[in-house]
């Protein structure tokens, strides 16, 4: 088992990256530490910084070994880690995501309802009433890992993943909910679909959602889905 979290640690992640560990569990406090740290990196990028990748409990920080030495860069990170504790993270953005929970989009809604012994309407109501929190973006471009799912809806993944989950699908996997930004194979239980494009490679900030965003789902009828769909479904 990991020791209880005490202070951030730096671990070697190959020749040109450090892993900064900020906690051992997925929670808002760990998130806030990471947000303050990445805010410090944005405001005062250390020499040789290539990019950073925030995850649930860690941040991967990539550097250019031709510009900086590994130890010098680690020292620069340590100083920013110390400084970041004093910061206040920016207030969260609230993002509303319209979702159509109707057929043919709600591929696994009947299964989820049956699995928990609830009606389809109850599952939908519990899903859209909750407030979700974007812990990180990863897995595929623009994919948000959302915390805050009603525990009564936690459902295991498909034993073997579907070969193609359509773009925009909203799904459940254990205690998480997420949205598929592109057509890909996946094992999440799909209960609806959003007409929004979550990944926009033509934009400078290509993901619709950012870590730290507060997300609410708004149920929409199929007619509105078709009228507002941003991609060719």
């Amino acid at each position: 088992m990991d020791p209880p979290f005490d202070r951030p640690t730096l671990t070697c992640l190959g020749e040109s990256a450090w892993l900064v560990t900020w906690g051992h569990s997925i929670d808002r406090e760990t998130f806030a530490r990471i947000a303050r740290f990445t805010q410090t990196l944005d405001a005062d990028p250390p020499r040789g910084l290539v990019e950073y990748v925030p995850a649930f409990t860690t941040v991967g920080v990539y550097f250019d070994p031709e510009t900086t030495g590994a130890d010098a860069f680690a020292g620069d990170l340590e100083r920013r880690i110390a400084r970041s504790a004093a910061l206040f993270p920016p207030p969260p953005r609230e993002v509303r995501i319209p979702v159509c929970y109707e057929d043919p989009f709600a591929i696994d809604l009947a299964f989820v309802a049956q699995y928990h012994g609830r009606t389809r309407d109850d599952v939908v109501a519990r899903h859209h009433r909750a407030e979700y929190f974007v812990h990180m973006i990863g897995f595929v471009p623009g994919f948000p890992y959302l915390g805050g799912l009603d525990t009564a809806l936690a459902t295991p993944r498909h034993a073997s993943p579907r070969l193609r989950v359509p773009i925009g699908s909203v799904g459940i996997a254990d205690h998480q909910t997420g949205i598929y930004p592109i057509d890909i194979p996946g094992g999440w239980r799909i209960i609806g679909r959003t007409p929004l494009r979550l990944f926009r490679p033509e934009e400078r900030e290509p993901a619709l959602l950012r870590p730290g965003d507060v997300v609410r789902f708004e149920p929409i009828p199929a007619s509105e889905f078709h009228a507002t769909c941003e991609y060719s479904a």
């Binding site: 990539y62 973006i137 897995f139 471009p141 623009g142 490679p201």
Partner: peptide
């Protein structure tokens, strides 16, 4: 580079 934080390989 610079887009891994958005999940871009």
């Amino acid at each position: 580079t610079g887009n891994q934080r958005w999940g871009v390989p």
